[in-house]
Amino acid sequence: MNVMSFVYGFLVLLGVFVFQTTLTGLNRKVTARLQKRYGARWYQQFLDIFKALRKDSTSHGWVFDFGVIMALGGIMATVIFIPVAGFEAFPGLDNIFVISYLLAVGMLGMAMSAAGSGNPWASIGVARALTNMLAYDVPLMIVIFTLIFAFDSSSLSEIAALQQGMGILGWNAFRMPLGGIVAVIALLGMLGKKPFDSFIAPTEIASGPMVEYGGKHLGFMFILHEFMTFIEVSIILSLFFGGGATIWEYMLKYAVLYTFMNIISGVMPRFKIDQAVKYFYRVPLAMAIVQGLVVIFTGLGVTLWF
């Protein structure tokens, strides 16, 4: 660890912000085309964020303010630990457990801040968000433990590297197809895309945790959301789609995966929160367990089986 790590970390943050925000903007256009219209400008997401940062905002006590800063800090710290195409700010620390614990700091900050606003819709939203997390985490964790068991490693970059060099069929999504499907469904839940977006549903709970945010607070939440998206998509990309050998390959794969999520989301209504939980505990959980048993008892998936 030296000064260069920190400089690199800063560059990663900046790069991730620009890349992810552009991609979000482009995806708004994709969704718009799905809905038979032109859609916003590709840089609209930047304008939205800077506009929000420019506005005045209303505070609802120090918990509300501190939560936002804590969330942003936690999430930004997590981004630095994400390996991108083999580059890492802190080599050797891209462990899946490190990342999920750091991510929890950010999540906790968000929940704290939203609950601190005192608005009942926000509390309902936070409760739903946590329920949702519980729902997708169980099947996803089973699949991830299966991966760790199979590869004897919990490092994102190592798992990604192990999948490369065997073409498209070497990806874990194809080695362990059931696990790959679970991961994609869980990613929808992680990103808060439909049908699992009931915690921010505007027509049900008036955008849930976001209900009292405005101005600068909302701007920070938007930036946070971009980073969060990057972390979530990156984890799935590295674990199941082989990461990327080069930075360009990584970005391309990332863009395809993220756009795919958006297209699915574009033609989906949303589940009620209880239905989402039931769904996750029925189909993906069963698939995850079957996948785990197959890997543990037959070894298919660790070795190439085709």
Partner: peptide, 21 residues
């Protein structure tokens, strides 16, 4: 919606007054 598509101007609906301009 699709015929006139306000989002071209960068406008969109927001859920609560706090978020809105």
């Amino acid at each position: 919606t699709s015929r006139y598509d306000m989002e071209r101007l960068g406008m969109g609906p927001m859920a609560t007054p706090r978020q809105a301009d």
